[in-house]
Simulated scan of single mutants.
Amino acid sequence: MAYKWSDDLLTGNKQIDTEHKELLNAINNLLDACSVGKGRTEVESTVKFLTSYTKTHFSHEEALQRKYNYPDYNNHKKEHTQFIETIEDIQRKLLSNGPSVILVGEVNSKVASWVIRHIKKEDVKVAKHIRENSK
């Protein structure tokens, strides 16, 4: 199942929206690689990308939140930390067991759905706070 970018995912912050689009593309690449039985190396490289990329992206988001004194910063950061741990757990499973149908399901339930929910619910609130406090 591919995830498509839609207007309800827009935060209005160009850098964050661009990074969110790249993140969705990476998730789709991982799901595609797992679902067609492509080599372990390709799947591992996608997960490694996600591991690195989420840390970079989350640091950008968190810097903006600190700059604009986002009131729910601590909870937002906690969600980021938990997500990074989820990605690292999936990476460990890939290294131990290789790609599998079970892993594809885990990616769908723990990664892709989390990203969509997080953007729609949390990141949109951050973007609104930034817009309201940067006038």
Results as ranks from 00 to 15, higher is better:
residue 119 I to V: 13
residue 120 K to R: 13
residue 49 F to E: 04
residue 88 E to F: 05
residue 22 E to N: 01
residue 86 T to F: 05
residue 79 E to L: 12
residue 116 I to N: 00
residue 15 Q to K: 08
residue 28 N to C: 12
residue 118 H to L: 11
residue 127 A to Q: 01
residue 126 V to A: 03
residue 35 S to Y: 01
residue 70 Y to I: 10
residue 73 Y to F: 15
residue 83 F to S: 13
residue 11 T to F: 00
residue 39 G to K: 10
residue 120 K to M: 14
residue 100 S to R: 08
residue 89 D to L: 11
residue 97 N to G: 15
residue 23 L to D: 02
residue 17 D to H: 08
residue 8 D to C: 09
residue 14 K to I: 11
residue 97 N to T: 15
residue 64 L to M: 12
residue 61 E to A: 06
residue 106 E to T: 15
residue 29 N to W: 07
residue 86 T to C: 07
residue 25 N to L: 10
residue 78 K to Y: 08
residue 69 N to R: 05
residue 19 E to W: 00
residue 129 H to P: 05
residue 4 K to F: 02
residue 40 R to T: 11
residue 101 V to E: 10
residue 100 S to C: 14
residue 109 S to T: 15
residue 76 H to C: 10
residue 94 L to P: 05
residue 26 A to C: 06
residue 67 K to P: 07
residue 72 D to I: 02
residue 132 E to Q: 14
residue 28 N to W: 03
residue 34 C to W: 04
residue 70 Y to D: 08
residue 116 I to P: 00
residue 114 W to C: 00
residue 117 R to K: 08
residue 51 T to Y: 03
residue 64 L to C: 07
residue 45 S to C: 04
residue 12 G to N: 09
residue 63 A to N: 09
residue 61 E to D: 05
residue 77 K to T: 13
residue 31 L to T: 11
residue 66 R to C: 11
residue 80 H to M: 10
residue 41 T to S: 06
residue 10 L to T: 05
residue 91 Q to I: 06
residue 50 L to S: 03
residue 11 T to Q: 00
residue 74 N to L: 13
residue 57 H to S: 04
residue 104 V to I: 14
residue 21 K to F: 03
residue 57 H to D: 06
residue 112 A to P: 08
residue 4 K to M: 12
residue 28 N to V: 12
residue 83 F to T: 02
residue 108 N to L: 13
residue 38 K to D: 08
residue 93 K to T: 13
residue 106 E to N: 12
residue 95 L to T: 15
residue 95 L to F: 05
residue 105 G to A: 14
residue 9 L to H: 00
residue 109 S to P: 06
residue 87 I to W: 01
residue 91 Q to A: 12
residue 79 E to N: 02
residue 134 S to W: 02
residue 87 I to M: 00
residue 86 T to R: 07
residue 33 A to H: 03
residue 128 K to S: 15
residue 33 A to C: 10
residue 132 E to D: 14
residue 56 T to H: 04
residue 121 K to G: 14
residue 12 G to K: 08
residue 9 L to F: 01
residue 96 S to T: 14
residue 37 G to K: 11
residue 128 K to R: 14
residue 36 V to R: 05
residue 35 S to V: 01
residue 63 A to L: 04
residue 12 G to I: 04
residue 110 K to V: 05
residue 83 F to E: 01
residue 115 V to C: 07
residue 76 H to Q: 11
residue 68 Y to D: 02
residue 91 Q to H: 13
residue 32 D to N: 10
